[in-house]
Amino acid sequence: MRNFRTAAVAAATAASVAFAGTSVAFAAENTEETSLSSELSSANEKVKEDDSDATLSSKWGDATEGDKKVTGADLFGENTADDTTNPTWAKAWREGTYAAIGSAIAGALFAAYNFAVYNHIIPAHVLDPIFRR
Score class of each variant (00 low, 15 high):
D67S: 14
A10P: 02
A99Y: 10
F76H: 10
T55W: 07
T84G: 04
G77T: 09
P129S: 11
T88F: 12
Y98S: 02
E29R: 11
D50T: 01
D51G: 09
N114G: 05
T85L: 05
A104Y: 07
I105E: 01
A73R: 13
E45S: 05
I101A: 06
H120W: 02
T88I: 05
T85F: 01
A108N: 01
N119K: 08
A8H: 14
K69I: 04
E49N: 15
S52M: 11
V9I: 11
S57I: 08
V17Q: 01
F4N: 12
F76Y: 10
P87V: 06
G102V: 04
A104Q: 03
T88K: 05
A92F: 01
S23M: 14
P129N: 14
A15T: 10
L36V: 01
N114L: 04
F131D: 03
E33V: 10
N86G: 05
A81S: 06
E78Q: 09
W89C: 09
T84D: 01
P87G: 10
N3T: 11
R2N: 13
S37M: 15
D82K: 13
F76L: 04
K48P: 03
S35W: 08
I121A: 12
A108E: 04
R2P: 06
A104E: 07
E33P: 09
R5A: 04
A54C: 12
L40H: 02
F26G: 07
S42Q: 15
S57M: 15
E29N: 09
S52E: 00
M1S: 14
T6Q: 14
A124S: 10
I122Q: 05
D67R: 08
D50M: 07
L109P: 03
S41C: 07
A116F: 00
R133P: 08
T84P: 00
S57W: 15
A99I: 03
G96K: 12
T85H: 10
S52V: 12
N114E: 15
A81E: 06
E65I: 02
P123E: 07
N114F: 13
T6E: 11
S58A: 15
D74G: 01
D62I: 02
A8M: 14
G72Q: 11
E32Q: 08
E32P: 10
N79C: 00
N119T: 04
V70H: 03
N44H: 06
S23R: 13
R2D: 14
F19P: 00
E39A: 14
T55G: 14
S38V: 00
E29Q: 07
R2Q: 15
A28K: 15
G102P: 04
S103K: 09
T84Y: 02
I122L: 11
A7V: 05
T80V: 14
T84V: 03
F131V: 04
A99T: 00
T80L: 08
G72Y: 04
D67F: 04
M1R: 15
F131W: 15
A27G: 07
F26H: 13
G107Y: 02
A11H: 11
D128C: 07
E78H: 12
N3M: 14
A63K: 09
I121R: 08
N86K: 12
T85R: 07
K59Q: 11
P123A: 00
S103W: 03
A27H: 13
L40K: 02
T97Q: 01
E95V: 06
E33W: 06
L109N: 03
